[in-house]
Design a protein around this nucleic acid. Structure first.
Lengths: 342, 342
DNA sequence: CTACTGCCAGACAACGTTGTCTCGCCACGT
DNA sequence: ACGTGGCGAGACAACGTTGTCTGGCAGTAG
């Protein structure tokens, strides 16, 4: 900046004014400064600027997701980036992998880099550590899952409602034995989807059968073997509700192997690419990760801009997409309670 | 830091030494300092540290990809993050959307934030601007596509070879009229894959037919209508080589609509989730985005650590995965040159 | 012609940290 | 007892920038 000032024949402070777009500077001088900046390839140092400024902004936000490589997180990431881009803000990302320790480490790393705010899909049920971990005026917005122990905005899918709708849909097609297959039950979204499943059963006057509920399926492979097991016992289900992406995919694989994919009804929570091209195409309750990301980013920027209103919950609705797998009628043979032979 | 020093009864400089893990500190004092840090919730300020340090490291790298939301970029992003995590380095990300201006903007934004290095999947054929845009000692590594106008490492898939192998595979199954469907021909990977396709045809003594080559299909929808058009003319192909993810998916959709998915052979470049669950399952030449990301990150860190050796090209091999669609024989009816009726 | 106002440019200090230099202390050898 | 060497701690300046204060100059009113 000193070099630029010398080249433009002005003081260092005037260069600062030009760089920051202040209007109280003679246009002639401003033009000279701009020229010098170009000539010397001067680049403004945001780090030094942040250090000195009173608002301490870095024009950078942090985004902590389950795994930046999975389609849901990636879509959410993209829409956050688009909102940030419109404000000239950059995005630091990190994957949590359901690891509580990683959650704290990343929050610390991003705090040390003075991110202006964070959007977090939390792993655990206690985010109270954020209040001591983060700088006081840096807001947090929770996305996908609610945070606890700290007042903050949250952007959530209507998990209970969506799961109820999915299960109700299967009931409406005549199913009485509907299995639930879900992710780690400690994950709040999995709990809520399980809760929606139970609600729909209760509503229909159906007794929940413990043998038809399987939790903690965190990978497609686990889901696949869970489904295999399910159909090798007496009284198998005639329909399945899978509460997550990877579980749905593992389930489709298993049904193929069992040759039951045209026999057993299936509704999955969360859409996935190519669901419409499978045979039968997979009926899903679709989340809207793009809207979730956009909403979270907007909420965060509102807080960064100083909105002091009480924390808000934003509920992003799910949409049922009927494609075929969810509209299969109960198989008489399975309904009779016969297990599948290999 | 001053507060910590006071609380621990040492000088500010000693706190700095403890924070930076220097060994020339009395363990007793170091413990006192650690205690004070905990008690006061002191957080080291990386920005200020960067400003003062002689190496000016931010422990942050930048990653510029086509679109962080697409599966290829997302997988690559994830593996870069894993390498960075092992070094305590954070990742700034940005999507380029094939936009040259965006490429420059993001490079500038990340330079202003003093990223220690950048991994870029470049949009254009001229990255010479990087040499004036970036700080002198901050390395770049190109990934997926080569950079031009600046010496730097590059991590590339064996695009020509992979495309040749794919096309050769179709030739080996008896096909003589093989169509090429690809992304914007200005993208270097698309050019290379087209080149591989031509090479395989030449090798088999087949005349390339201009009518069987379609470029600039950047979305699945464009690919879909291109395929529809292809089969409504006389002399349709009996096999298709699709040179990119979205093109392959659009093509599958079109073949379904035409009821030709069990008739026309298809090999796609780049694998995609659920390709194995389609009917027929889609034969692909798979790239390895995880290895590409890992390799790029390692190359970048080697440069950041000061490796002065000449720039290197890393070629990441592709793998053909035979799943069924690529092994279909030529349809006699199509081979006879009859166009498809709707 | 003086006094006052407004406005723009520059001087200076400070943001939180670390590189460098200096100084004091202790152990050890003579 | 005294000198020397080594090692650990503190003082100070500086990194690149901006908030604040001061000063000069032009324009205007009395």
């Amino acid at each position: 900046m000193n070099d630029v000032a010398r080249a433009a024949g002005v003081s260092l402070k005037t260069v600062s004014r030009v760089v920051n777009g202040e209007v109280t500077v003679n246009p002639v001088l401003a033009a000279q400064v701009q020229q010098a900046i170009e000539a010397l390839h001067y680049r403004h140092d945001i780090g030094a600027s942040t250090l000195r400024r009173s608002d301490r902004r870095t024009e950078t936000i942090a985004l902590l997701l389950e795994d930046v490589g999975n389609p849901f997180s990636a879509a959410l990431h993209r829409s956050v980036e688009d909102e940030a881009r419109a404000r000239g803000v950059q995005v630091l990302t990190g994957s949590l992998d359901e690891d509580p320790q990683r959650e704290r480490e990343l929050v610390r790393a991003f705090t040390m880099r003075r991110a202006d705010g964070m959007i977090i899909a939390p792993v655990t049920d206690d985010q109270s550590f954020l209040s001591t971990e983060m700088h006081d005026d840096n807001p947090v917005v929770f996305v996908d899952r609610p945070g606890h122990g700290i007042p903050a905005d949250a952007v959530l899918a209507t998990n209970v409602l969506g799961a109820t709708e999915a299960t109700r849909h299967l009931v409406a097609h005549g199913h009485r034995r509907i299995a639930y297959l879900g992710d780690y039950i400690r994950i709040s979204t999995a709990r809520q989807r399980h809760q929606g499943y139970l609600a729909a059963l209760a509503e229909a006057g159906l007794e929940p059968e413990p043998g038809l509920v399987t939790h903690d399926l965190h990978t497609a492979a686990l889901a696949e073997s869970a489904v295999m097991a399910l159909f090798h016992r007496p009284q198998p289900p005639t329909a399945l509700f899978t509460s997550q992406n990877l579980v749905t995919i593992g389930t489709v694989r298993a049904l193929r192997r069992l040759q039951l994919h045209r026999t057993v009804a299936l509704v999955g929570f969360d859409d996935f690419p190519l669901a419409d091209l499978l045979e039968p195409a997979v009926t899903v309750v679709a989340q809207d990760p793009a809207t979730m990301g956009r909403t979270a980013a907007r909420a965060l920027f509102r807080r960064i801009d100083g909105d002091p209103s009480p924390p808000q919950e934003h509920w992003i609705p799910t949409t049922m997409i009927r494609r075929g797998s969810g509209e299969l009628p109960p198989s008489p043979s399975l309904a009779a309670g016969r297990p599948t032979r290999l």
